[in-house]
Write a protein that binds this DNA or RNA. Structure first.
Lengths: 116, 116
DNA sequence: GAATATTACTTTGACAGATGAAGTAATATG
DNA sequence: CATATTACTTCATCTGTCAAAGTAATATTC
């Protein structure tokens, strides 16, 4: 499993990560969970409760819509679909991440030059 | 000021950011605060309460030590010095950040290939 | 010299996201 | 029949951030 990522380094990215999965097509909780584990190369294990918290949040803000699958056999599945608004949020969050990444690089590794 | 970084994108990095400043020499709260604002190119404004919370945390875990400056005039200043343990923590946190950054890039921008 | 701004440090309470834990329920496997 | 796996949900707790308020000194401006 390798080392795991600390909670705080992931915090705030869950919604974006879920939206990124849904960009590629409708999916349901358990499948999304597994896709994310796989996407991370098994380095990050999203917790179930975290995922469902994210669904609530995303649905409330209108980024995703849900509908029950019509499985005749097997457990019922609640599918999620990304909305137009969700796509816009995703793009915005991605841009924010790239922006923040640069600043964090400066803050974490950058030296301090005295400018006076 | 440009756009500002969301709290959650910074969360968990404050300690590392403070340690990075102290790597370059002892300093005190207000000065550290200003150095961080400058380091970010004025893109990120660390909040005072957040900084002092970080000091408590860092001192408790032995990453920094503090001592009062001997200013004869001007307000009293509490200086912070990074310890050996603090340096090790810094290096570890920096490595964690670079590790997490790669994974987050995959999770946020990566596509999903079906491997079956 | 009075008012205001700036430097400097501290505490308290509230908030939000992540998560452990527990629960429900169906199907699949051995 | 017992166990594992799939699948979804809720609740309580923890932690880092931060707004707000407070204390107190010096510097600046009117």
């Amino acid at each position: 499993m390798g080392k795991n990522i600390s909670t705080d380094l992931i915090r705030g990215h869950t919604d974006t990560i879920v939206l990124n999965v849904l960009r590629h097509g409708d999916s349901y909780g358990y499948e999304i969970y597994k896709k994310i584990v796989r996407l991370s190369g098994n380095q990050y294990q999203l917790k179930e409760a975290t995922l469902y918290t994210a669904f609530r949040r995303l649905e409330k803000e209108g980024s995703v819509e849900s509908y029950w699958g019509d499985e005749t056999q097997g457990g019922r599945r609640k599918y999620y679909r990304i909305t137009e608004a969700g796509l816009r949020h995703y793009e915005q969050n991605k841009a924010d991440w790239n922006f923040a990444k640069d600043i964090l690089d400066k803050l974490i590794e950058g030296g301090i030059e005295n400018e006076e």
